Simulated scan of single mutants.
Amino acid sequence: MERLKGKNIVITGASGGIGAEIAKLCAARGANLVLLARNIDKLQVLQRDLQQHHHVKVAVFQLDVSDTDKIKEVFTQIFATVQYVDILVNNAGFGIFHAVHEATIEEIKGMFSVNVVGLMACTSMVLPKMRERHSGHIINIASQAGKIATPKSSVYSATKHAVLGYTNALRMELADENVYVTAVNPGPIATNFFTIADEKGTYVKNVQRFILQPEYVAQKIVNAMLTRTREINLPRWMNMGSVIYTLFPRLFERIGKKAFNQK
């Protein structure tokens, strides 16, 4: 409980879902927060709630992480406010479930701009000070989709594959800098993610019994903060699928074809 007390934690995509739940848990443990999202109204409501119930500092900034110029501007303001960042949680992201031939160029660019480029840009803003201080933690929210690509999530899976590749390389680069790097690979979570990703509701209906609660995912993430945790895979049994897929890809795709096409 004491590990996070007084630490400065930046969370992107903090206006709802696991971002907001992470913020609540960190505030309860005495951390100072910088919350970023596109919806400033929701951030301000969360800010008031956290400050009312916990004696911590909470700053909020409106930010669309697809706007790299805005990222530079906002992080300049962040460093003027908190001087340095102990933990960055790259949580902002979205997906759209379409067959490859149905995905528009705008959707493809949008997902890569937010899920990949935005994540990299935010990370680049905090890394110099973390390296200088030989202290810090980068937590990137990836997905089980980054390990197993499935039909109708080709672009989303591609972005999460990219996040995992970037995260793994970054971890090795920082191995001697005392800066930790963690990838979080959850399965489906009960958030508004699927409002955009699954317009017809087919996927949610088919995986209802497997859907994770955001509070549970957030708890696992917060418990791992400032520890040398390589990956958090949720649920743990689902990660076994990626191990089997790596060893027996053709068999896995043949057997799993029916289940994968339920989106």
Rank of each mutant, 00 (worst) to 15 (best):
D67E: 08
K57Y: 09
V126N: 04
S135I: 07
H134D: 13
Q47R: 15
D41T: 14
G110L: 04
N39I: 09
E106Y: 08
M111K: 04
L35P: 01
V60P: 01
R38N: 06
V45Y: 12
D64F: 00
L33G: 03
F97M: 14
I87D: 00
Q44Y: 12
I139R: 00
K70M: 11
H134E: 15
S135H: 15
F61C: 02
E73G: 01
S135F: 15
H55P: 13
T76H: 15
M111R: 05
F94D: 02
G136T: 11
K129Y: 12
L35V: 03
D67F: 02
I138M: 10
N91A: 06
Q77G: 03
R38P: 06
C26I: 07
Q77F: 02
L127H: 11
I138H: 01
H54W: 07
L127R: 06
R48C: 07
N140T: 12
I87L: 00
L127Y: 06
K70T: 11
F61Y: 15
A27C: 10
Q44C: 08
L43P: 06
I78T: 00
M111A: 05
G136Y: 06
Y84H: 13
T123N: 03
I78S: 00
G118V: 01
A121L: 01
I138Y: 04
A99V: 07
E73M: 06
G110F: 05
F97Y: 14
Y84M: 10
G93M: 03
I138W: 03
A142M: 10
I138Q: 05
V100P: 04
F61I: 02
P128T: 11
N39P: 08
Q83T: 14
Q52P: 03
Q44A: 06
D41W: 07
E102T: 05
I40L: 15
L50S: 04
E132K: 11
V89M: 02
A37P: 06
A59R: 14
V117A: 04
M120Q: 04
L88P: 01
A92D: 03
V114A: 03
A31W: 01
F75W: 02
Q77S: 13
V65C: 00
M130R: 03
I105A: 14
R29H: 12
Q77E: 12
K42E: 10
N91E: 05
E102M: 09
K72T: 15
T68F: 11
V117T: 04
Q77Y: 04
F61A: 04
F79E: 03
T104W: 11
E102F: 05
V116W: 01
T68K: 10
R131S: 13
V45N: 14
Q52R: 11
E102Q: 12
H53A: 12
V82G: 01
K57C: 10
L63C: 06
I40D: 09
C26V: 11
S66E: 11
